[in-house]
């Protein structure tokens, strides 16, 4: 009797799980299917826009390759896009219509704003934001996107340095050149790192090269480039260097001689804030500024825990604990002869 009871319970439970409206497995399957076709649709738009911006006219083959689909599926997709009026296909070549262009820019906008959110607010490592944003970008609609943009403080660039399209589809232009085209021995600021292909991005990030960093090309020949970031020298193959885009140095005063990171300031020493790392953005940056860690503020390393992280600093009369990961983003200049307790202000 007990075994039967369990069996009936299991069957009833399973039936409920499958059939319940909204939350049931059947409803989920249907929603998942429609979401998947939307993802495909939007990814296709992105690919077409990307190709046309590179002046490489997209084809049926390139689209199929980028999305990983072929045959009937690909033809269905193209037919659907044509029916929606976003695409014109002439022979094998594909072209976005103005409507398609507009739609594609919105997808790019969603992607780049999400990348900004993930990097600034969710503090996802730079190497992972692209793939995480790829998964999440499709659920966002116009209004939610505008809200997100306002929440992020209207950023102009994504964390890789690509411009974020405004809601009207325009975007601020970028004057950058690939590192391979930069003159030897001139300082340059990394403006943007291509986020695809991802293994190249990861390789670049692993070397510590990222947007806002100041670099100098020491040597350039067809086989490799030698680049210095001020601390180390990197030897880069041109394929990789071409994925790094640079521009003139914006804020030449940031890297001052004699400055060090706040996390390295010895206990009991006093220092003056020089700057906050420009790549450190979002709520965390604003919170540190709001706490008074603005340029020229005086800080004193007050306390360390047994493990050296976090440490506490006195700034503008209050003791604030910071993790080293944060304190590393603050450049300071130590002040001389500051063994004594700091004044009250």
């Amino acid at each position: 009797m007990q075994a039967e009871g369990w069996l009936i319970l299991a069957v009833v439970g399973l039936a409920v799980a499958i059939l319940i409206p909204q939350a049931g497995i059947r409803a989920r399957w249907r929603r998942w299917n429609s979401a998947r076709s939307r993802v495909l649709f939007e990814d296709a738009l992105k690919h077409l826009l990307d190709q046309s911006q590179r002046a490489q006219p997209p084809t049926r083959e390139s689209l199929g390759g980028a999305l990983g689909i072929s045959g009937r599926k690909l033809l269905n997709l193209i037919a659907r896009m044509e029916a929606k009026g976003v695409l014109q296909s002439v022979g094998g070549a594909l072209r976005l219509t103005p409507e398609g262009q507009r739609h594609a820019l919105q997808v790019v906008r969603a992607h780049r704003l999400l990348e900004r959110y993930l990097a600034d607010e969710a503090r996802v490592p730079l190497g992972q934001v692209h793939s995480s944003a790829d998964k999440a970008e499709h659920g966002l609609t116009g209004d939610r996107l505008d809200e997100l943009e306002a929440h992020l403080g209207y950023p102009q660039r994504d964390p890789h340095g690509d411009p974020i399209p405004h809601s009207d589809g325009s975007f601020s232009p970028v004057d950058t050149v690939p590192l391979t085209d930069w003159p030897v021995n001139a300082s340059a600021e990394i403006a943007h790192v291509e986020d695809e292909p991802e293994f190249v991005l990861r390789q670049i990030l692993a070397l510590g090269l990222r947007p806002h960093l100041t670099v100098r090309v020491l040597e350039a020949c067809p086989e490799h480039l030698v680049v210095s970031d001020g601390e180390r020298e990197h030897r880069l193959p041109p394929v990789i260097a071409a994925n790094i885009h640079v521009g003139p140095v914006a804020d030449a005063g940031v890297r001052l001689a004699g400055s060090l990171r706040l996390a390295q300031l010895p206990d009991g020493r006093e220092a003056e804030v020089v700057a906050l790392d420009p790549a450190f953005r979002g709520f965390s940056r604003r919170r540190l500024m709001d706490l008074g860690l603005t340029p020229k503020a005086r800080v004193r390393a007050e306390l360390s825990t047994a493990f050296g992280d976090p440490r506490a600093y006195r700034v503008r009369g209050t003791v604030i604990a910071l993790r080293n990961e944060q304190a590393n983003r603050i450049l300071v200049r130590p002040l001389e002869g500051t063994g004594a307790p700091m004044g009250a202000l």
Binding site: A122, V124, S132, T318, V319, A321
Partner: peptide, 13 residues
């Protein structure tokens, strides 16, 4: 929770 916003502040009053 990977995509949720995250920050750290701690005042020692």
């Amino acid at each position: 929770l990977k995509g949720e916003a995250s920050a750290f502040t701690l005042e020692l009053p």
